[in-house]
């Protein structure tokens, strides 16, 4: 009978050693809401499961340099109850809190959502839009990587087999800035995004957009940063022409597949719609 070893290291260094020792046969577990389902369905067959939740710093939220450091294994429910984080980055939090059910929110984490590397991961377009950076540790020490560089394909990341995503660094929030995330699902919850779009914007005193980032999900092999879509908004007051440019940029970036969850044509069309709507919500929040 084949078994699975379960390890719960107390430090990142121990976790890295264990990961290294397993030589590719280990899987890291934060909330386990993807991993355990994959193991049960026979799609993941790790020999070792390394639970990260017991490592100090992997869970929890702290202020640093005007921004936030969010532990990669922090559950969605904890994020949703952190008033300061929610006030600063409402788009990221609404994206994270869309994942699964109330029960799943007690476990599911941003780190797991990103490293599971699904192009449909809800929190990732919002993290990309927010300009969040990953803090990574491995045998060679620490390094940083923007969220949009992490996913390299369905189920694949830029992390080496012995590297661990430890935390996210959220930038200090500029005045008159905010973000929003929208996803399309045929139902109201308990579903996976057919399309997702996260947008963060900054405004000047007169309401002109000074900076914007747009992240989209489920429209390509990975989640995407669409720089041209952000650029379309900069300098505008979100007029129809700027929004049309944003929509065109998003549509141009989409390279979706047709599958059981939606057609390529539909995904492309709706990605533009959601990006525009999210941009307007972010603007309203920023100017509120």
């Amino acid at each position: 009978m084949s078994g699975v070893d379960y390890l719960s290291p107390g430090t990142v260094a121990d976790a890295v050693s264990a990961l290294r020792a397993a030589g590719g046969s280990a899987r890291l577990m934060a909330g386990g809401t993807d991993l355990l389902v994959q193991m049960r369905g026979g799609r993941a067959k790790p020999k070792v499961v390394i639970d990260l939740k017991g490592i100090p710093g992997l869970s929890g939220i702290r202020l640093e340099g005007g921004g936030f450091i969010v532990g990669a294994a922090t559950p969605g429910a904890v994020l949703g109850e952190h008033e300061a984080l929610k006030a600063a980055w409402p788009g990221v939090i609404e994206a994270a809190n869309l994942i699964g059910s109330t029960q799943v929110q007690g476990r599911a984490s941003l780190g797991g959502n990103l490293c599971n590397a699904s192009p449909a991961a809800d929190s990732v377009p919002a993290l990309i839009a927010a300009g969040v950076v990953c803090l990574i540790e491995g045998p060679g020490g620490k390094r940083e990587l923007p969220v949009e560089k992490v996913q390299t394909g369905p189920g694949k990341t830029a992390l080496a087999v012995d590297e661990i995503l430890v935390a996210f660094r959220f930038p200090a929030k500029a005045a008159q800035s905010s973000d929003a995330y929208l996803r399309m699902i045929p139902r109201t919850e308990m579903d996976i995004a057919v399309v997702g779009a996260g947008v963060s914007v900054s405004l000047d005193a007169s309401g002109v957009c000074t900076a914007a980032r747009v992240g989209i999900g489920a429209v390509a092999p990975t989640t995407l940063l669409v720089e041209a879509a952000g650029a379309a908004l900069v300098g505008s007051e979100f007029d129809d022409a700027a929004l049309a440019k944003l929509e065109a940029a998003v549509a141009a970036a989409c390279r979706p597949i047709s599958d059981k969850r939606g057609t390529a044509e539909y995904r492309t069309k709706v990605a533009s719609v959601l990006a525009r709507r999210a941009a307007l919500i972010a603007r309203d929040r920023a100017s509120a």
Partner: peptide, 28 residues
């Protein structure tokens, strides 16, 4: 509105789960 058996070219049922076989949830 949403429920259906979706088949692939090889005759494989592609949505054999409550995630992708979209029955209404209470909030729908």
């Amino acid at each position: 509105l949403n429920e259906e058996y979706v088949y692939g070219k090889s005759g494989q049922l592609e949505n054999a789960s409550f995630l992708d076989y979209r029955m209404p949830v209470a909030s729908d």
